[in-house]
Amino acid sequence: MSLKAGRFKYFKEELIENAIRLTALSAIVSIFLIFLFVFKESMPVLYDQVVRQEATVAGFFRGLDWQPVSEYPRYSFWPIILGSLKVTLIAMLFAVPVAVGAALFSAEFAPARLKEVIKPMVEVLAGIPSVVLGFFALIFMATFLQRLFGWHIRLNAVNAGLALGVTIIPPIYSLCEDAISSVPRSFREAALGLGATPWQTALHVVLPAALPGISAAVLLGMGRAIGETMVVLMAAGNAPQFTFDILHSTRTITATIAAELGEVVFGSAHYHTLFFLGLLLFAVTFVINLVSWSLFDRLMAKLYGARN
């Protein structure tokens, strides 16, 4: 090979490597742009005089009314923050025991053949679009539960919370299953060898060892639940009211943005307020995810020693 050709080859190699490296920055650029633009569109509530006559950050946390379309618009975040908390809490109470239990079953007790069936089925459940779950909860589940429990209000926080729980069971299950499966076999052998039963081993040895991973999974599920839109938009009844009654219709942060952004006047106080809500949502889920991933890293470090 001549020197010239070698140099060209080297040059081409450099070029490709740099192009790939540049493309890889796209993820960083994306997350930065998302923050920047949601931030930019929400900032007029801080400095724009016209917008601030209607909506200010202090106003968001004063009063208990969310009435954006009225003669004197009110933008209190409390009813919708409470709505998000109620629905998320119900979803977690339902989803966490079910998902963790099923993960424990798959990882510890299920015969290999059964496991081969369970995992793809959970993946199919994960693949069901949330608009389909919303539809199911809106038309069928709500009617069924209303008849069963004699609810006064058909679409309420419990209905939405249960449906939301279904959407977060698959991710919690998958991460938990990973965490439990990655507990080294020697842990189990030691416990069983000391005379513990399989259940005692699972409960007192395997679960505690996998706990950072399970916490990470639970947190990740919580982030998903807070951020889920279609299910709560369709199944919660869409009433932004400040009430602790879980059998009352409610409205979450995500559903508020989804329901109102379509009809809002571009550049109005309402428009910027909805972006501010989005910013809040972004910040909350960002922190939850950060904690979740650091917990998962800690699990791996604990079980296998430091990696990466």
Binding site: I28, S30, I31, I34, T285, N289
Partner: peptide, 16 residues
């Protein structure tokens, strides 16, 4: 960034 992008709520993508 990839991990965090995966956790951004879908409605925030709509806003973006």
């Amino acid at each position: 960034a990839v991990n965090n992008l995966a956790g951004v709520p879908s409605i925030v993508f709509g806003l973006f």
